[in-house]
Structures are given as C-alpha cells and as structure tokens.
Amino acid sequence: MNAGQTETINQALRDVRDRFLFDLDQRICDFEHLRTHILNGPNRADAIRAVAMMAHKIRGVAPTLDLARLGELAGSVEDLFARAPTYPSIADFWRGASPLFESMLDEMERVQPDYACTQN
C-alpha cells in the first residue's frame, strides 16, 4: 500500500470518526439512563448487562478511530460489568464500579468536539 492509499484510508476513517463523535451524545445519554436504572430501576441486572454490551461496542471501534484511551476505558468497563454477578450485591458492585464508569463518561465528553465553537 502506497502513501496515497494510506492517506485515503486515513481520511475515510476520519470521516467515520467524525460520525462516531457526532453520535457520542446519544451514547452518553444512554449510559446515564442505564446508570439511573442500576441505581433505582426494577431490572438492575439487565441494566448492568446493557452497559457491558454498549461498552463492548465502543471497545471494538474506538482504537481504530484513534481513540485509544476511550477504547481502554470501555474495555475495562465491559470486563468489570461482565463480572457483576460475582459480587455479593448490586450495591457492592456499584460502589467499586462507579468510578470507572464515570471515568469512561468523562473521556467520552472530553473527546467530543465543541460543535458550538466550531460553528462560530
């Protein structure tokens, strides 16, 4: 593969990355919604499984889009949330898991472009 082709791929992947970042708000909302369910909902175990699944999806795409840190955090969240059934209670689990969960959300917010600024 020559330099021109590599640049073509990189440009195409940058377009995909832009789409991913543009939709990141929706993913953040979904995670926050699931957090509410984990804390208060009737199906807390289902919400934990859904977080693991969503984190799994981010883990699979973020590194290819040059978002290595987000990929790592999503991977850690997936692994930890997949082990939730081994904890004595959901409250115990959440005490240990929430800092990592919040770090992932922080990273998602950090990598988001500031669309308001770029439009001005």
Binding site: T8, I9, A12, L13, V16, R19, G60, T64, L65
Partner: peptide, 14 residues
C-alpha cells in the same frame, strides 16, 4: 454496531 460496519466498509473499499 453501525460505526463498525462503516469502518469495515471503509477498509473494504480502500
């Protein structure tokens, strides 16, 4: 995951 399919499509076509 739509984004993953986008990545695949990009790599396939390139």
């Amino acid at each position: 995951e739509v984004i993953f399919l986008d990545i695949l499509y990009t790599l396939f076509t390139s």
